[in-house]
Amino acid sequence: MKTMHGEGKRLLKGDGLRFLAAGIANTGLTLVVYQLLLFVVSPAHSYIVAWVTGLAFVAIIYPNKVFKGGRRTVIDRLSLAGCYCAVFLSGLFFLRVLQEQGVVPRLAILMVIVATTLLNFVLSRALLRR
């Protein structure tokens, strides 16, 4: 006999695994964009373009493939994009703080990715599973 608690854990685990897989693909894509752009523009501009690329990926893929059975209306997708924009701004701020502390941009981005990934999962799940 399945309990609501057990079903919730299963759903959380599935969401987490799909988020991790999609996040790896998205992170790989955005990290490549960021690293390539560092040859021609500043770290902040590289980060902006990489995030816009990742944002399109999130709005298209996450509601359908990551949080299956969750909310998928246009409003939900726009809200998800809005959450990611807020996390983007916090990541941009964190990147700047790390640079001011002397962390090299190629390493700083990895630290930003860890922090923003955790925040994005919590916010995305709360939004699409409410």
Rank of each mutant, 00 (worst) to 15 (best):
M1Y: 07
T3I: 10
M4S: 09
M4L: 11
H5G: 12
G6A: 08
G6V: 05
K9M: 14
L12D: 09
K13M: 11
D15Y: 10
L17N: 10
R18V: 10
F19W: 08
L20H: 09
A21H: 10
A22M: 06
I24N: 00
I24D: 01
A25N: 02
N26E: 04
T27K: 01
T27S: 02
T30A: 04
L31Y: 00
V32H: 08
Y34P: 04
Y34Q: 01
Q35P: 00
L37N: 14
F39T: 14
F39M: 14
F39D: 12
V40G: 15
V40F: 12
S42T: 13
H45T: 08
H45G: 04
S46Y: 00
Y47Q: 00
V49R: 00
A50F: 01
W51P: 04
W51L: 01
V52L: 15
G54E: 06
F57V: 10
V58P: 01
V58D: 09
A59K: 11
A59V: 09
I60G: 01
I61A: 08
Y62H: 07
P63I: 08
P63K: 00
P63W: 05
P63V: 05
N64E: 03
N64Q: 02
N64S: 06
F67H: 03
K68W: 01
K68M: 05
G69P: 07
G69H: 02
R72K: 09
R72L: 06
T73Q: 06
V74G: 12
V74A: 14
I75F: 07
R77L: 11
L78Q: 07
S79Q: 12
L80C: 13
A81G: 06
C85K: 04
V87Y: 10
F88V: 09
F88L: 10
F88C: 10
L89K: 09
S90G: 06
S90D: 03
S90I: 11
G91H: 10
F93S: 14
F94I: 14
L95T: 01
L95P: 01
V97S: 01
L98M: 06
L98S: 06
G102Y: 00
G102C: 00
V104N: 04
P105R: 08
R106C: 05
R106N: 07
L107C: 11
L107K: 08
A108Y: 03
I109Q: 08
L110H: 07
L110S: 12
I113N: 00
V114S: 03
T116K: 12
T116H: 04
T116V: 04
T117P: 05
T117L: 01
T117Y: 05
T117W: 03
L118H: 04
L119W: 05
V122Y: 12
V122K: 13
L123W: 15
S124H: 06
S124D: 09
R125Y: 13
L127V: 12
L128A: 08
L128R: 07
L128K: 04
R129I: 07
